[in-house]
Computed example of a mutant assay.
Amino acid sequence: MAAPVPGVGRLEEEALRRKERLKALREKTGRKNKEDEEPKNKVLKEEEGGEKHRELKLRNYVPEDEELKKRKVPQAKPASVEEKVKDQLEAAKPEPIIEEVDLANLAPRKPDWDLKRDVAKKLEKLEKRTQRAIAELIRERLRGQEGDLESAKPEDSDSD
């Protein structure tokens, strides 16, 4: 027999003391020992049916075995959205409001409308200048006619 190693007994005692302290600490904090605690999943499964495995659900696989065919999930049918879409389209349509319609707004514009728009300011200035020039010409003619009228008038004679 081999002689016991002098430090081993002391290490075992320290390990036991450490375990007791941890156990006391767990009891204070409310935590259970890992050995005593079972996973929640296991508890739930055992309560449900006493089975430890999930029930097999076949969605995409078509089994050949009769027993497995019973577990096949029927194909899901998509919900009809046509009625919902129709209702939304009807709700989105505004009520027709009939007001006076300006035909000028509905008629298409002439191809040169933008040119006329851009030149309009310049034309206004030219129009003012043209009116001034016409007025000046009329004044000159009137002055010329006054001169002609004066020369054409007979001189006043006093014959009394």
Rank of each mutant, 00 (worst) to 15 (best):
Ala79Leu: 14
Lys86Met: 05
Asn41Gln: 11
Leu149Met: 13
Glu100Met: 07
Trp113Asn: 10
Glu95Pro: 02
Leu89Asn: 13
Val85Phe: 05
Arg132Tyr: 03
Asp118Phe: 08
Ala2Cys: 07
Lys128Ser: 01
Pro96Met: 06
Val73Ile: 09
Lys70Asn: 05
Ile97Asp: 03
Tyr61Ile: 12
Thr29Pro: 06
Ala91Gln: 06
Arg21Asp: 06
Met1Lys: 13
Lys70Cys: 02
Pro6Asp: 04
Arg71Gly: 02
Glu35Gln: 13
Asn105Phe: 09
Leu58Lys: 11
Ile138Asn: 15
Leu16Trp: 08
Arg132Gly: 02
Glu82Asn: 08
Lys70Ile: 02
Lys86Ile: 01
Val81Asp: 11
Met1Asn: 12
Val62Lys: 15
Leu89Lys: 12
Ala133Lys: 12
Arg141Ile: 05
Lys77Gly: 02
Leu137Gln: 12
Lys52Val: 00
Lys153Gly: 02
Arg129Lys: 14
Ala24Ile: 02
Glu67His: 11
Asp148Tyr: 04
Asp36Cys: 08
Leu56Ser: 02
Arg132Leu: 09
Leu149Ile: 09
Arg10Leu: 08
Lys19Phe: 05
Arg26Ala: 05
Glu127Asn: 07
Asp114Ser: 04
Lys23Asp: 07
Lys93Ser: 03
Gly50Asn: 00
Leu106Ser: 03
Met1Phe: 06
Glu48Phe: 06
Lys52Ala: 10
Arg59Ile: 03
Tyr61Gly: 05
Ala104Val: 08
Lys32Thr: 02
Lys77Arg: 13
Ala3Ser: 14
Lys34Phe: 11
Val85Lys: 14
Arg59Trp: 07
Asn41Arg: 14
Pro108Gln: 05
His53Lys: 15
Lys19Thr: 03
